[in-house]
Computed example of a mutant assay.
Amino acid sequence: MIWLILGLALWIGAHFFKRIAPGVRAGMGERGKLLVTVLSLAGVVLMVVGYRAAEWVPVYSPLPGMGHANNTLMLVSLFLFGVGGTKGTLYPKIRHPMLWGVVVWSVAHLLVNGDQASLVLFGGMGLWALVSMVLINRAEVWVPPTGGRGLKGDAMNVAGTLVLLGVIAMIHAWLGHPVFLGTYS
């Protein structure tokens, strides 16, 4: 569990660096971006290793049938991740689409995983995303972006979402967690 917590701390620390010490971060320029990237990647590796190695300690029992809700929420989450990149009709309407995607991802996984490590990982990431939105909103006035691709961007996002969901499902199956066969974790 220590690796999971350390990885989560690295991820959160790296992403809050700009908010906690904006002057220091700005003074680092490109080196600061590289530092955040390296710490974030190290955090992800430690979270994965720590989650997979964590002892299974039950906290609550997920409700039956929540796997379908998980899969549906994952579609929504992945779509939200792509909103900024594909610049569809939601692009000028949703502030922080990637962070909202993390929140939805977190909730989706907490619906089907009731163990301690899942609460730490998925709950921690969801909480990080919510706090990030609050910090950003306090620091910056949002000016909705203009332009975008409209429905063409949405179509691109739907296609990307479906491909990415397939890749994620294959990775989960490879790790022993088939997400479309009724076995969720």
Rank of each mutant, 00 (worst) to 15 (best):
W11T: 09
A155H: 02
G182W: 07
N113I: 12
H172N: 12
A169S: 14
H96W: 11
A69D: 00
V59S: 07
G32H: 04
S40Y: 10
L127D: 00
K93T: 08
V158K: 00
G50Q: 05
P62K: 02
A42S: 14
H172I: 04
K33S: 14
A9Q: 03
A21Y: 15
S61A: 13
A159P: 02
W128I: 03
L78V: 14
G88R: 00
A155C: 09
P97Q: 08
F79T: 01
V24Y: 12
P58R: 11
G150D: 07
L80I: 03
S40W: 07
V163L: 15
N113F: 03
G65R: 07
W100F: 13
V57K: 10
F122M: 05
M170S: 10
G88N: 00
M47I: 13
N70H: 14
L162W: 06
E30V: 14
S185Q: 14
L151S: 14
V104N: 00
I94D: 02
P22I: 10
H15D: 06
W100L: 11
L46I: 10
V57L: 13
H68N: 14
G153L: 05
F81L: 13
H109P: 04
M133C: 05
H172S: 04
G88H: 00
V102Q: 00
F16N: 08
L110E: 06
T72A: 15
V179K: 00
H96T: 05
G23D: 11
A139F: 09
V163H: 04
L4W: 02
D115A: 12
L41P: 01
L151M: 13
V158I: 15
P22T: 09
V44N: 04
A155F: 00
G101M: 03
I20V: 15
N113H: 08
I94C: 06
H172Q: 12
V103F: 06
V107W: 02
D115G: 11
P62Q: 09
